[in-house]
Amino acid sequence: MFLSLRFTHCVLVFCSLTVCGCFGGSAEQIERAAVSGTITYDGKPLPEGSIQFVPGTDASGKPLRGKAVQALISEGAFSLDADQGPVVGMNQVLINATKKTGKFQEFDGQKTEILKQYIPAKYNTNSTLTYEIKSGENTADFALETK
């Protein structure tokens, strides 16, 4: 019985330390910021698509902590509030837009239209776009071209 009480006591102490954050420090806060902007493609607002901000590296070359975030583009505009925004620092930017092909595929009895990416790969899968997110409000405008 003494062993059982000692084990229970140890479990309770471990749980309280873990809940209090005393067992390895508190979680590091990742600074995010608001961002909005416009996307044009060949001089016209991108009708619809998505934009992603992927954390890059800091000034010393260390990878920034945090997750990639995404916003929908509508009529060339996008916006993310600070609580859902990208990590402060340099971010790689990926912009995607698809259009219907008129071709269909069937999967599990469901027929869906095939979509095709029409933005060049240098803006998404092989993106060369970057943007430095700063504390506070950010405006990130991108002018994309076919060539």
Rank of each mutant, 00 (worst) to 15 (best):
residue 2 F to L: 15
residue 4 S to I: 14
residue 7 F to N: 15
residue 7 F to D: 15
residue 10 C to M: 15
residue 11 V to T: 14
residue 11 V to G: 10
residue 12 L to Y: 13
residue 13 V to C: 14
residue 13 V to R: 13
residue 14 F to C: 15
residue 19 V to F: 13
residue 20 C to R: 13
residue 20 C to P: 05
residue 22 C to D: 12
residue 22 C to W: 14
residue 22 C to Y: 13
residue 27 A to E: 08
residue 30 I to D: 10
residue 30 I to K: 04
residue 30 I to Q: 04
residue 31 E to I: 08
residue 39 I to D: 01
residue 41 Y to C: 05
residue 42 D to T: 03
residue 44 K to A: 11
residue 45 P to Q: 07
residue 45 P to S: 08
residue 46 L to S: 10
residue 49 G to I: 00
residue 51 I to T: 02
residue 55 P to I: 04
residue 55 P to F: 06
residue 59 A to Y: 02
residue 62 K to G: 02
residue 66 G to S: 01
residue 67 K to D: 09
residue 69 V to W: 02
residue 76 G to S: 00
residue 76 G to Q: 00
residue 78 F to N: 06
residue 81 D to F: 01
residue 83 D to L: 07
residue 84 Q to Y: 06
residue 85 G to D: 00
residue 85 G to A: 01
residue 89 G to D: 05
residue 93 V to Q: 03
residue 94 L to D: 08
residue 97 A to F: 07
residue 98 T to D: 11
residue 101 T to D: 00
residue 101 T to P: 05
residue 102 G to N: 05
residue 104 F to R: 04
residue 106 E to Y: 01
residue 106 E to W: 05
residue 107 F to H: 07
residue 110 Q to P: 04
residue 111 K to H: 03
residue 112 T to P: 02
residue 112 T to N: 09
residue 116 K to E: 15
residue 116 K to M: 12
residue 118 Y to C: 05
residue 118 Y to D: 07
residue 122 K to C: 11
residue 125 T to P: 09
residue 125 T to D: 14
residue 125 T to W: 13
residue 126 N to F: 08
residue 127 S to T: 12
residue 128 T to E: 14
residue 132 E to V: 09
residue 135 S to C: 00
residue 136 G to Y: 08
residue 139 T to I: 09
residue 140 A to I: 02
residue 141 D to K: 07
residue 143 A to Y: 00
residue 143 A to L: 09
